[in-house]
Amino acid sequence: MRRGQLFGGIAALAIATVVFILPFLFVFLNAAKSPSEASQPSFAWPSEWQFWQNLVDVVQVRDYALLLAYFNSIVITVGAIALLVIFAAMVGYVLQRRPSRVSRVVGFVALTGLMIPPAVVPTIWLLQEIGLFKTLHGMVLIQVAYGLSFCILLFRAFVASIPRDLDEAAIVDGATPLQVFFRVILPLLKPVTLTVIVVQSITIFNDFTHPLYYLPGSENITVQLTLYNFQSQFTSQLNLLFMNILLITIPPLLVFIFFNRQIVSGMTSGAVKG
C-alpha cells in the first residue's frame, strides 16, 4: 500500500466517521440518558447510563405497543415475502423461457410498477370495498403488489443463467410444468431468492408510507409507525425516542452484517447491463 493510499484512507475514515458514524453514536448516547439530560440531546457522555431502564420503559409504552408493532411487522414481512418469492419467480421463469407477444406485454406492465407512484386514495377505496382495509392480510397483499416488479426483474435475469436443457430433461422424464418449476427451477433459484428475501425484508420492514395509509389503528401498528406515533408523545422523553430509533435499526443492521453480499447484488442489479 502506498503512503498516499494510507493517508488518503485515514483522512477519508476521519471524514466518514464524522459524517456517517457520529449520527449513530448520537442516537446511542442519547438512548442511554435520563429524560432530563436527553431533553437537550447532545454528544455529551451520559452522566449516568440508564440504557436498560430506557429499553424496558420504551417497550412498556402504550401497553407494549412496540412488541405488537414488531409482531405485526414480522407477520407482514414474512407473509409478503413468501408470496413474492413464489409468484415473482413463476412470472420471471415463464417471461424468460417463453418469449412472445404476451410475455412482452406482461414484462412491460411489470416494469411500470417500478416507476408509477401508487394511487393511494383509490387504493384505500378499493381495499374498503373488498374488506381488506385496516387488515394485515390487505397490507401483505399491498406489499406483494408493490414489490412484484423488482422481484420479477431479478428472477427473470437469473433464470436466464439456468440451462433450458434442465427443463427439457425433466419434461422428458415426465414432469408437469408445475413439477419442472418446483422440483428443478425453484431449488436452482436459491441465490437470487436469498437476495430477494433480504432486500425485500428490509424494504417492507422499513416501509412507513404504506402502513400509514392502509393500516391505521393502534392495534395495527407497525414498527415504523411506533416512531411516528411516539414522536409527539415523547417530546419530554427524547431518551425513549432515541431508544426506539435504536431498536428498529437493529434488525436491518443484523441483516446487513450477515447478508452483505446479497444486499449488494440485489441493490446493484440493473447497474451493469449485459
Partner: peptide, 15 residues
C-alpha cells in the same frame, strides 16, 4: 401463461 395468474391478480387488482 397461467403461471402469471397469481401475480397478475394481485398486481392488476391492487396496483
Amino acid at each position: 401463461y397461467w403461471f402469471f395468474l397469481p401475480a397478475a391478480v394481485i398486481f392488476l387488482g391492487l396496483f
